[in-house]
Every structure is written in C-alpha cells, then in structure tokens.
C-alpha cells in the first residue's frame, strides 16, 4: 500500500521518458522514409556489421580493463579507515564534475606526437611516438571516462559486507586468498555485475571518443547512429534500426550477466 504513494509521478516519468521514446525507436525502425512498413532498415543494419563487431570488441576490452583496475581500487578503498576512504571516493568522483568532452580534449593534447607523454619520453631519450589516432587510444578514453561507474558499485557492495564473515573464515583457518575467493568476491558479485553493465553499455554505444581519440578512422556504432540523426547522411529510420539492434544486444548481454546474481540482488534490467 505504502509504495503506491510514489507511483503516479514514477509512472508519468516512465511513460514520457522511457516508454514513448522506446516505442518511437521501434516504430521508426520498421518504417521507411515515407512512413510505410518496411524491413529494409533492419536489413541495412547488417551493412555496418564490422562497425558493430569493432564496438563490441573495444567495449569488451575497455570493460575488462575497467574491472581489472576498478576492482582492486574499490577493494583498497573499502579497507582503509573512514577519513581516508571519504577522501579517496571524493577523488574518484572529482573527474565526473568536469565535462566529458573537455576531459577527452585534454587527453588529445596529452597523447599527441608533440604532446606531453611523447615529449617526456623524448626527454628520456627513448624517442617520440604518437599515441593518438589508434584503437588503443579509444579504449583508453573509454576506460578513463567510465571507470568510475565500475568502482562505485563494487565499492558500495564491499562496504556493506559483514566483516564478521571474514573473521569467521579466518577463525576456521582460511588464508587470505581463500577468504577473498570464497567469501569477499562472491559477496561482491552484484556490484561487479552492475559495474560491468554500467561500463559495457556506454562503451559500446559511445560516440565522439573515436572521432577525438581515434582520428575518426575506426568509427564506432554510436558514431554511425549519430551520423544518421545529426550528420550529413540523414536517415533517422536506419538510425533507429541500428539503435534497436544495439538495444537487443545489450539486453541479451545483461540477461546473461544477471544469471550470475541471485534474483533479489539484481540491479540490471534485462530480458
């Protein structure tokens, strides 16, 4: 009964900002430019297969890196004393206050051939090299921009975990590694899954990053969608169809990941 109090605004929000736009995407995906029903857009989506594959692949690499860097970071932060912890979390959040484009633009000047990193290595006598305009630079941009979304959910789960469980495991004679593998990590799994979803989804659908850090050579699916709506090859129907396929892909991925978490602890929506 109590829950219903907050329901009307929530339903209003859900309908206007989620359901209506979603159905518009589906509607446009199945119509041609004249508004007739057509499947040609969905067929055309597969022309961009290699872009899809590249996006999935780069998104996968970026997510793996985020996890490999993010999990230890979150773990360490959750272990230190409370004053230090607050400071560290603030430091993690700090870059989020700056505009996404601005941060990426700054990285462009750092990674350039005449940029900071290259100059530094030149100074050391290793020689100059250009780090920008490669796929690795794009992955780097994704990791840099989205790692916060990996650290925060893992951190919030780790911090809630009952310390007594660890103590109990110690009492029963488990070593540090075993405690981590058998107690801490399984308990933090909901956070990990949420983190992976929150990094993978924006990484796969990101745009601008490949233009700025990748030199526009390896376009991602987000760039293609962007072009269909705002660019010179204007075709919102095809853009919607690509978005729809991307959405289905993301839903399937989230569905798979959700299976690793108990029903009550799921934080990611999926099919």
């Amino acid at each position: 009964m109590k829950k219903r109090v907050v329901l009307p605004p929530y339903i209003f929000w859900l309908v206007t900002f989620v359901l209506v736009p979603m159905s518009l995407v589906v509607y446009f995906a199945f119509t041609d430019k004249n508004g007739n029903f057509s499947l040609s857009n969905l067929n055309d989506v597969f022309l961009y297969s290699n872009v899809f594959l590249r996006s999935i692949w780069l998104g996968f690499i970026a997510t793996s890196f985020c996890f490999l860097i993010g999990y230890p970071t979150a773990y360490i932060i959750s272990r230190v004393n409370i004053k230090c912890r607050k400071f560290l979390i603030a430091m993690i959040m700090l870059p989020m206050w700056t505009n996404f484009l601005l941060k990426t633009y700054a990285w462009m000047t750092i990674l350039e051939e005449r940029g900071f990193v290259s100059c530094f290595f030149q100074f050391l006598g290793i020689g100059k090299f250009s780090l920008i305009n490669t796929s690795s630079a794009v992955v780097f941009g994704m990791v840099y921009n989205f790692i916060t979304y990996m650290i925060l959910p893992i951190y919030s789960v780790l911090i809630r975990n009952d310390r007594h469980l660890v103590e109990a495991a110690q009492d029963l004679g488990a070593n540090q590694l075993k405690i981590f593998l058998k107690v801490t990590f399984p308990l933090s799994l909901p956070g990990v899954i949420a983190g992976i979803a929150m990094v993978f989804v924006p990484s796969v659908s990101t745009f601008v990053l490949s233009k700025m850090l990748g030199g526009g050579k390896d376009l991602l699916i987000g760039d293609i969608i962007d072009m269909q709506f705002l660019g010179s090859v204007y075709n919102p129907c095809l853009g919607s169809a690509i978005s729809l396929v991307l959405m289905i892909l993301v839903f399937i991925c989230s569905g798979i990941m959700n299976q690793f978490v108990k029903r009550e602890e799921r934080t990611v929506i999926a099919l």
Partner: peptide, 21 residues
C-alpha cells in the same frame, strides 16, 4: 567504415550470446 563485411561474424556472435543465455 572500411567496407561492408563481417555480417556472418556478427550474426554468429548474436547466436552465441543467445545460446549462452
């Protein structure tokens, strides 16, 4: 986008994902 290819691979990946699920 460097040509139209990889259609089969993409479909394969889709199928693998669905199967896995």
């Amino acid at each position: 986008i460097d040509g139209y290819n990889g259609k089969l691979k993409l479909i394969l990946i889709f199928l693998i994902f669905i199967l896995l699920y």
